[in-house]
Simulated assay, not measured.
Amino acid sequence: SDEELKHYGTVKAEIKLYYSNGQALATSFFAFSIAKTLEDQNIIPTADYYIDDFETLRDGVNHIVEEISQTVEELQ
């Protein structure tokens, strides 16, 4: 989920393996830490930038180019 992709801090987890013969195995709980990088601190969360396909990327680039062109025209 978006919230999982944006999560930072301590993560507590357990791995459970389910076998085809009906048996299951679980590990002991463990924890690890996810730190924000400098890039993550000052931008929109990375999850907002995932690209589904080339057409989505192209449309996004075209939209940005239009915005830049309009800004340049306004500045002139």
Rank of each mutant, 00 (worst) to 15 (best):
E73W: 02
Q41S: 05
E14V: 04
E67S: 06
I44Q: 10
D52G: 08
H63W: 09
L17Q: 03
I64P: 00
A13F: 00
E14Q: 15
I43T: 14
Y18S: 10
E14K: 15
S28H: 06
E14G: 00
L25E: 10
T46Y: 12
Y19G: 04
H63M: 07
E74N: 15
D52L: 12
A47W: 12
Q70Y: 09
S33T: 03
E3V: 01
S1W: 10
Y8A: 06
I15W: 00
E66R: 12
V72K: 08
S20D: 12
N62W: 00
I15H: 07
A24H: 12
K12A: 00
R58F: 11
T27C: 01
V65T: 15
A13Y: 10
K6Y: 05
E14D: 03
N21I: 02
T37M: 14
N42H: 14
F54K: 13
T10S: 13
D2Y: 09
Q70N: 11
H7I: 01
E14F: 00
E39D: 13
T27W: 09
F32E: 04
G22H: 06
A13P: 03
D48M: 04
Y8C: 01
Y49P: 04
Y8F: 04
S20F: 01
S28N: 14
A47E: 15
E66Y: 09
V11H: 04
D53P: 06
D59T: 09
E74H: 12
F32G: 02
L57P: 04
F29P: 11
D2S: 14
A26Y: 09
E66T: 09
N42I: 11
E39K: 11
Y8V: 01
G22E: 00
S33Q: 02
T71V: 09
F32T: 02
L75Y: 08
S20C: 07
N62D: 10
V72N: 10
L75M: 07
G60C: 03
T10F: 12
E14A: 01
E3W: 02
A47I: 15
E55D: 14
N21H: 03
H63V: 00
Q41F: 01
K12I: 04
F30L: 02
I51N: 08
E39W: 08
N42F: 14
T56R: 05
R58D: 13
F30V: 03
E73P: 07
T46P: 03
N62S: 08
I15Y: 06
Y18W: 06
L25R: 09
D2M: 08
D48I: 04
Q41L: 10
G9Y: 01
Y8T: 05
E74Q: 14
P45H: 11
H7C: 08
T56Q: 15
I34A: 08
I15S: 06
D53M: 02
D59W: 03
S28I: 03
Y18M: 13
A26E: 14
E4T: 12
Y49N: 06
L17C: 06
S20R: 11
G9P: 03
V72L: 10
F32R: 05
T27P: 02
K6V: 02
G9L: 05
R58Q: 08
Y19T: 11
L5R: 05
F54V: 13
Y50G: 09
D53S: 12
K36L: 15
A26Q: 14
K12M: 00
L25M: 10
